[in-house]
Write a protein that binds this DNA or RNA. Structure first.
Lengths: 143, 143
DNA sequence: ATACTTGCAAATCGTTTGCAATACC
DNA sequence: GGTATTGCAAACGATTTGCAAGTAT
């Protein structure tokens, strides 16, 4: 339970990717700066509200996308109709608990791909995403 | 360019999974019965319209989900905000052309996973999805 | 001073729902 | 005839947009 990086560090990080360190972006970046996290726009907005930070939902969406575009965050696609943003931008994969909608990182070293097919001609690999979809065992029992 | 399976075969297939062979379901199942395909609800609806088949969009959604629930189709998640349905229900993976939204199958044998981490305690693996995201080389050149 | 950001509310997208009319067994 | 299915139009959740007001450099 630390306070995370000081504002100055966050301001620096924002500046370094070309984003003006506005009050809203600083606050959101700080909320996202602790441990590895997977957040949805709505939940980050709620969290900000709860922390007494005035930010509109539209601004949260703007900021999240700008963070993704500048490499501060990564988007994870596991559910049609809902976007998740991952604070861990290094190469890794995910466990996805379908029942709860929770995501958990799989460190790069824990999952290895052998025999990856070459990209079709004219195309280039942007990223390889592996999602291991999970059901809670209890759910299974009930069919 | 064949006509695909006869109606009787399709009717049988629908019956075998417990779905009443209605005019709409038969028509949709037939549209989906050729080669391996990846369709979105909207596009299947347009296709049906173009083929002179009267089906409402709501019914297309209903049918697609029923087909998924009964194992006739598989859902592929590659884009937040849009669902794709895959007529290939066997174990395989996907190339995803981000620019065009096109999907292409990767046969199971072409991609192998080594070192798959065990499911977290209390959870069970439902499926492992690998998506290789691609950019057209031309896009890259333009930055 | 200027360009970039924000917040609001309205608009949009894909999808789902309630329910009366209709089709299948 | 009785139940499952359909179509419509309205409702929906998540996300995006236009634009006037506010803020960073």
């Amino acid at each position: 339970m630390t306070d995370g990086p000081a504002s100055t560090e966050i301001v620096e990080r924002l500046r370094s990717v070309g984003l003006r360190p506005t009050r809203q972006r600083i606050a959101l970046a700080r909320l996202l700066s602790g441990a590895d996290r997977h957040v949805a726009a709505e939940s980050l907005h709620s969290e900000a509200q709860a922390a007494g930070i005035a930010v509109s939902l539209a601004t949260v969406y703007n900021a999240l996308h700008q963070f993704v575009d500048s490499g501060l965050l990564r988007e994870v696609v596991v559910d049609p109709g809902k976007s998740y943003f991952d604070t861990n931008t290094s190469q890794h994969h995910h466990f996805y608990f379908e029942a709860s909608g929770r995501l958990e990182d799989i460190p790069a070293g824990d999952l290895t791909l052998a025999r990856v097919p070459p990209a079709p001609h004219g195309a280039q690999v942007v990223r390889v995403d592996v999602v291991i979809r999970l059901a809670e065992t209890d759910d299974i029992i009930m069919q």
